[in-house]
Amino acid sequence: MIWFQFQSLIGSYPLALRGLGMTVALSAISLVLGTLIGFTLGVLRTSGNRLVSRVIGLWIDLIRGTPFLVQIFLIFFILPEFGVELDAFTAGIIALTNLAACFICEIVAAGIRSVPTGQVEAALASGLSQWQRMRQVVLPQAMRVSLPPLVGQYVLLIKDSSVVSAIGLTDLTRVGWLVVQRVPNGLLVFAIVGIGYFVVCYPLILLARRLERRMSAAHGEVQL
């Protein structure tokens, strides 16, 4: 019986690879986009413009205060009502990118706020422009604080990507559901799905731990 199940599992490996590929693609694209947007929002949030900061803060609270599943449904089912046709992949990317940007914004903003005001004053006094102060003085120091939680957040977001299976994307989790209908051994199938996620996340977990150690030890600019 178990032998038969194994055989048919092995037969499902193209599907499993497709699922893994989908999960990696979704995560990679939305993490890159989310990081770019999150950094921009984080810098804007701390730039001193009250209104901008409030608006960003409100949006972040809204996203953090609602389930990700609900956000995906809103994007996938409600936006078309307003004439915005989206395929499931695009909807998934938008939802994940938005979520990533919100969390990353807060991590980056916290890092920026942790830089002592004396640093900004020294940069200001030497005539650096606002962008140069950010790029040369504030961000490198903020990164020391932000990088470990940032990488940790990436792991959480990769796992959150499993929610997109709800709108029909064939990611790793959905492959699990599909396979389990043919091979009725949920424990076995989802153990393998779990291993798939773990394989993607574990290097990041190790990286986060290493970064944390290096942050506390070294001087100089942070390098991966």
Binding site: A122, E221, V222
Partner: peptide, 12 residues
């Protein structure tokens, strides 16, 4: 030039 009490060198 401005010299601060707490130096404010860039630590990185």
């Amino acid at each position: 030039g401005f010299v601060f009490q707490s130096f404010n060198l860039y630590p990185h």
